Simulated scan of single mutants.
Amino acid sequence: MAYWLMKSEPDVYGINDLARDQTELWDGVRNYQARNFLTSMAVGDLAFFYHSNTKPPGIVGLAKIVEANVVDPTQFDPTHKYYDAKSSPDKPRWRTVVVGYVETFPTGITLDQLKDAFSPEDLWVVRRGNRLSVMPVADAVAERLLAMARSA
């Protein structure tokens, strides 16, 4: 099992939405590095759910990968904001995962707390200027994050 961090704006799709829906296609990723991370995910992996573009930003819960290597259907819909004219059903450019709800943390772990606890090498989300929406999390870092979330 691997660990990941997945960012979403709570006014677009937040942890409460995932708790309500229980599973959701993680669509719309249009960064090649983030896409490559998505294609590296396996069923059963866990993802820290991070609320971005909010006050305060931070990790608010946990999701699991319930389906891996899924073709993102939004790339083929010309009316969708994530449409990609260079992608085709026989050669899709964008793949993703389906995430399932695991838990909402009693108290989120804010970005400031993350910066105090981790170096940019340990946890990429604290790197200045990091805009990736999906990133790996090392096992040792994940264990510390889970301990922080559950001790709050």
Rank of each mutant, 00 (worst) to 15 (best):
G100H: 12
R20E: 13
Y13W: 08
A147W: 10
N31F: 08
A140F: 04
P120R: 11
H51D: 01
R20A: 09
D84E: 11
L38N: 09
S119V: 10
Y50P: 03
D139M: 05
N31Q: 04
M6D: 02
V102S: 03
D21G: 08
A85N: 03
A142D: 11
E24Y: 08
P92T: 09
V12M: 07
N36D: 00
Y83H: 13
A140Y: 05
S119W: 01
E143C: 02
L146K: 13
A42F: 06
D139Q: 10
M135F: 04
I109L: 06
H51L: 02
S8K: 05
A149W: 00
D84L: 07
T107L: 06
H80E: 11
A147G: 10
K91W: 00
K81M: 08
E67Q: 15
P10D: 04
A42Q: 13
L111E: 08
E24P: 00
Y3V: 08
E67V: 10
A2D: 14
R30Q: 15
M41P: 03
A149S: 06
D11W: 01
D21E: 12
L62P: 00
V43A: 03
G58L: 04
W94D: 13
T54W: 00
D139C: 01
Y32G: 06
A138Y: 02
N31M: 11
T74L: 04
Y13N: 04
Y13M: 05
W26I: 05
V125P: 01
D21K: 11
R93N: 10
E143L: 11
K55G: 10
K115Q: 14
H80W: 07
A85Q: 07
S88E: 07
K7D: 02
V66A: 02
L25P: 06
M6W: 01
D116H: 14
L46F: 04
N130Q: 06
P89G: 03
D11N: 10
S52C: 09
D112A: 14
G129T: 11
R95M: 13
S133F: 05
R150H: 15
Y50E: 01
G58N: 02
S52N: 07
A42N: 13
A117H: 06
A19S: 09
A149I: 01
P136D: 03
G14L: 00
T79V: 07
A142P: 14
I65V: 15
D27S: 15
